[in-house]
Amino acid sequence: MKNSKILGAVMAEVLLLLVCLMIRPDFFSISYQPSTGMLYGNIIDILNRSSEITIIAMGMTLIIALGGTDLSVGALVAVAGAVALKLLRWDVLEYNTPGDYTVCNFFWVLVLPLVVCTLMGMFNGFLVAKGGMQPIIATLILMVCGRGVAQILTDGKQFTTGYAPFKVIGQGAFLWLPVPIIITVVVVAFMAWFTRKTAFGTFVEAVGINRSASRLSGINAAMIIFIAFAITGLLSGISGLIYSSRIMSNDSNNAGLNYEMDAILAVVIGGTSMTGGKFSLAGTVIGSILIRTIVTLVYYFGIVSEATMAFKALIIAVVIVLQSEPVRKYFAKRKGAAKS
């Protein structure tokens, strides 16, 4: 029973992959490209392209398990890109010599965006945990402001960079796999360890089920909520670095657009209830991959990219209706009737 919710998403994913296989018999083929040292194939591509959402959805899972939502993640993706490109751009302006792109250490180019995003996540967490605001509204503030901050940081301009070490994050290869996949695996592994091998995951579920009861039993509920939002901010920053490294530029208007929606959907498809309580990181990963598979499948039918939304909506509607309480109760009843 515990895994029945994930099962729906897994079955939908398998079904979609079978449809892909029917359309393209070579769907699962993977080839090696010696020039880039990377494996190529549809499966690799789906994993690669879903990594931004998967990383954010890891944090979103915790927040949804706590009974909230974080709408600001898309804006934080834009902020991370703006900060990183601002640091990379300064150097171009001051030195204007190729190969000498950074004044400040490249280390700071990676760390400062993450610090800024973590601080913004902490701001969300503070408003929710200490201010007692509804998460949806508290994060709406940064969702509205965030892109404005990103625009002001970069003076409303779009910078491009050619700095090779930065390119590795989004387009490089490690162990024959694209680096985003490796980052995703590391993040997922860390989050799985952090929530299942420490008490943190249990605390999150306890606070999500009943905040006052968990506080009375000695859990620092406010601190748990604060940490969850800070983690989500950090993960949005990582996702933003990957995004801006893919396009080697910052795009304050479009970077991370609708990521909050996709991340929330990934979590919900993965079987974590919006009302809070139990969560499943594995389900979230599957949900994120499912969303990307739908997009890939729709491309195969030669349909324009914006229209994928309609198909996304249809498949998600089916998964969510199947997961909904009355439908599951109905099936459980029928199952029980068949047994007796």
Partner: peptide, 10 residues
């Protein structure tokens, strides 16, 4: 929202 936006793009 996804449905309406998708149909719009179709």
């Amino acid at each position: 929202m996804f449905l309406a936006r998708g149909v719009c793009s179709l």
